[in-house]
Design a protein around this nucleic acid. Structure first.
Lengths: 322, 322
DNA sequence: TTGAAAGCGCTAACAA
DNA sequence: TTGTTAGCGCTTTCAA
């Protein structure tokens, strides 16, 4: 910058004004500055700029998700990017792998880098450690799950509503023995989906298997249920991997055309499988987009945004009870 | 930091030394500093630190991929993250959406933020604009495709080799009319895969449809080929979306069990479809990991790392010619 | 071993 | 309209 000023024969302040487009500068001087910038290949240092600036905005945000390579969360990521980019804001991203200490570590590092905001899929039992950043002026939005032990904006799917819709759908096809196969109930989404399941069941018997954390768990639980005494005629799987495990198990038993199945969260290529996999689809991109919008709005009040889900009928959920 | 120094009754320099663990500090003084840090909730400002530091390292890198929510590229992303994180390096990420001006814009912004390195899936016709960053000391690694009009490290899949393996596999099952359905040949990977296809064919007739840029294109091309005069008995699809389009088309014709199919790049749940989808799988996570390793190694010589592919037999590729 | 002071590249008062 | 100067929060000489 000093170089540019020297070559253009102006002061540092003028270069700054031209480069930032702030303040009035005589056109011919501005042109000389631009010329020098081109000649020297000058590019202003945004970090130094942030340091000195009055508003101290770094035009960067942090995003903490479970895993950047998980299709659900990478769609959330894209949603956030799509609202950040038009604002000229860059995104730092990190995977927490559902480990609380990684979540904290990432939040810590992002904070030390002076991000203007943080979008976070919380996994720690307690997010109150973020109060410091919040008070320091970092905007905060939680996504997929609400925060615990601290207030804050949150954008979540309609987990309970989607689950109710799935179960009601199965009931409409005559099912009275509908099993729920769910994730760790400690996770908000799993607990909400089970709540929806129970609500929709009414007086029908609840058949529940929870704490299933992999497709293998889903596979085993499905086998066990269907080979048991009073097997269910329909399955409602509360998560992606569990759905896949259930499909494999139904195939292994040759029951994929006789036992109904609705999964929560969409399955890639769910329509190419036979029968097609009926699901309650979430909209992860919208989740990210709404979170980003909330982040930049910088509202005071804590808001909970609920993104609707959609039931997609592809065959497996429309198999009748008998 | 001034506060910390005041509370601990030491100088700024001592606080810096304690916080960074550099230089010798009397244990009792160090303890007083730590105490003050805890009390005040002090966190050092990494951007200011970078500005002043001798090495000017920001402990951040930039990653430019086609789309953060594309499973292939998000796996690359995870690979890069997995080598950056243990080094305490944070990752800025952006989607180029295969638009050259976005690629440049992102590279520009990352540069202005002082990233130490850039991992990039190049889509512009010319990457020489990056020479400036390179000379300014930014490490540069290209991934999935080599750079154009500038030297640089690159990590790519064994596109030609994988294609040869796919075609040879089909030939081994008796096929003599094998069609290639490919992406835009302007893209390095598409061109390499076609080259591999042609090499493996030997004297067999080449049946090619290229410039297919969506699953709909793949669908249409498959229909057209199979309903034509001398239909192929086997298909080699050079890209994910094309593979999906081809599967849909084969189903629509009821030919999924009589026409062989091998796709380049793995398909999620390819084993749940009937018949299972045989593919030449890439290892996008390894692509990202190797790129990250090269980035941090900061070798002088331009190196081209080729990551091997794996043929996965799931049924569709093992359908015999008659 | 510690502290004083300079200065990284930039922006924002203020003065001219 | 332009330039001078102070200083953002930090690290790094250099001297004590």
């Amino acid at each position: 910058m000093k170089e540019v000023a020297r070559v253009a024969g102006v002061s540092l302040a003028t270069v700054s004004r031209v480069v930032n487009g702030t303040g009035e500068v005589r056109p011919d001087l501005a042109e000389r500055v631009h010329e020098a910038v081109r000649m020297l290949g000058y590019r202003r240092d945004l970090t130094a700029s942030t340091l000195r600036r009055a508003d101290r905005q770094s035009a960067s945000i942090g995003l903490i998700i479970e895993d950047v390579s998980n299709p659900f969360f990478s769609a959330v990521h894209r949603g956030v990017e799509d609202v950040a980019r038009p604002r000229g804001v860059l995104t730092f991203v990190g995977s927490s792998d559902e480990m609380p200490e990684r979540e904290r570590e990432l939040a810590e590092t992002f904070g030390a880098r002076g991000v203007d905001g943080l979008v976070i899929v919380p996994c720690a039992a307690d997010q109150s450690y973020l109060m410091r950043d919040h008070q320091a002026g970092t905007a905060l939005v939680f996504v997929d799950r609400p925060p615990r032990y601290m207030p804050g904006h949150a954008v979540v799917s309609d987990n309970a509503g989607g689950a109710r819709a799935a179960v009601a759908h199965l009931m409409r096809h005559g099912h009275e023995r509908i099993a729920f196969l769910g994730d760790r109930l400690a996770v908000y989404t799993a607990e909400q989906r089970r709540a929806g399941y129970r609500e929709a069941l009414g007086s029908l018997p609840a058949i529940e298997r929870t704490e299933l954390v992999s497709s293998e768990h889903g596979y085993a639980a499905t086998l066990e249920l269907l080979q048991g005494k009073h097997p269910p005629t329909a399955l409602f799987t509360g998560q992606n991997l569990i759905t896949i495990g259930a499909i494999r198990a139904l195939r292994a038993l040759g029951r994929q055309r006789s036992v109904a199945l609705v999964g929560f969260d969409d399955i890639t290529l769910g329509d190419l499988v036979e029968p097609g996999v009926s699901v309650v689809a979430q909209d992860p991109h919208a989740l990210g987009r709404r979170a980003g919008e909330l982040l930049f709005a910088r509202d005071g009040e804590s808001r909970l945004v609920v993104v609707p889900t959609t039931l997609i009928e592809r065959g497996s959920g429309e198999i009748p009870a008998f």
